[in-house]
Design a protein around this nucleic acid. Structure first.
Lengths: 216, 216
DNA sequence: AAATGTGAATTATTTCACAGCC
DNA sequence: GGCTGTGAAATAATTCACATTT
């Protein structure tokens, strides 16, 4: 196992591999090679091996990987063997869609509390989750052992909400608001910005085969 | 202007810059330097200049960039000066949240048609959009000049839907389903996978300060 | 024979650093 | 003096290629 810094893209792909072999395990397939796994995830075989290599040696030379073993190892590495509680802030269209998702089992990531600034929404129920005022975030974070948060509020409010989240002691934020959040060292933010994703596609649509080829 | 291949990450950041200077233009600010723009987007000044440099020379040495000019240039480069029509496939929780978003003006990207496989949903109205059967996708694509598509269906159906989209002549897909789509050369796919994003955060939560530092 | 694990080579991206201009 | 534009340097990520193991 190497001791080098693990690229974030590697982590992202490991979840992809895990997802894939979880499907394969269901249909009782026992082993897989790096090139098969690469094909299934649209990646190269060397990429698969290098990614796994950051964390240890999981394969058998000449034979590939045992799906059961690799699955267990990846779950351990990726923190899938523990349950992570999530706070959702913002219960507009997107927030409620996320709540509905979270309801669908299958995830080990559970939204356990929802918050909103809008007084009209406080007290609303989604399944067994009741919407609460943001002022209660800190209290609930302690009570429910919350470690992850989702920001699903309008752009103008996102920075303020982020600060409240951090004050409550949560250090990981999934931000759906289209703004660049400013957070202190040690706080981890990931952005999901689908209007930007769609815009990027429109760039490709606008530049199809005009010689400045960014497509690959 | 360089003639080198433009990294996709550059395109992504250009939209960030454009978003920022659009805000500044509103409050009547006239010029900005690369380092100010970098600060506002949490990027370095050299990164800003290099990104812009792929497309031309927009600044004035010693004085920075004219916001009005840069805004116009970026809109042109990024295809924001044209309107791009979008087809949405899948009108579950997520799909309807996206429809609601699209309704909110401000975007030049318009969902102009929505499709679903579920007979019970056909005919439903969201604002001025009526849900249609997927069999009509190709017809509507021609009629409404659709160039972009959004897949918001369950994972198991995503590949089939992608093939239908491509057959209809659409070459850009924003895929929300948690699967790796297989598409022919020339078709551009971007994936938005928020359960994976949340999982990645959980990895960081699981590995906070354990020596294998992937955080930066 | 097949397929891993991993250094080395390659390619891509970011950051530096500074000449040149306003 | 401040700031752009851009080669060069540094860093990061991917891909190659092969010795090694079963």
């Amino acid at each position: 196992m190497s001791n080098k810094k693990v690229p974030e893209s590697t982590i992202s792909r490991l979840f992809l591999y895990l997802r894939e072999i979880t499907e394969l395990a269901k249909i009782n397939i026992k082993t897989i090679s790096s090139s098969e796994l690469g094909d299934r995830t649209n990646l190269g075989d060397a990429q698969v091996r290098k990614d796994l290599g950051y964390f240890g040696q999981f394969g058998v030379t000449g034979a590939g990987y045992s799906i059961a073993d690799l699955k267990k190892s990846l779950e351990k590495i990726l923190g899938k063997d523990k349950k992570w509680n999530v706070a959702l802030i913002g219960t507009g269209h997107l927030g409620t869609a996320l709540l509905a998702y979270s309801g669908f089992g299958r995830h080990e990531l559970d939204i356990v509390a929802a918050f909103d600034a809008d007084a009209k929404k406080i007290g609303k129920k989604f399944g067994d989750i009741t919407v609460r005022p943001i002022s209660e975030l800190e209290k609930l974070t302690k009570e429910k052992n919350i470690t992850l948060s989702i920001i699903a509020v309008p752009a103008a409010e996102a920075q303020g909400v982020a600060e409240t989240i951090i004050k409550a002691g949560i250090e990981c934020i999934l931000n759906f608001a289209p703004v660049s959040l400013n957070v202190p060292e040690g706080v981890k933010v990931r952005n999901v910005d689908f209007s930007r994703e769609l815009e990027i596609l429109s760039y490709f649509a606008a530049n199809k085969g005009n010689g400045r080829e960014t497509l690959k």
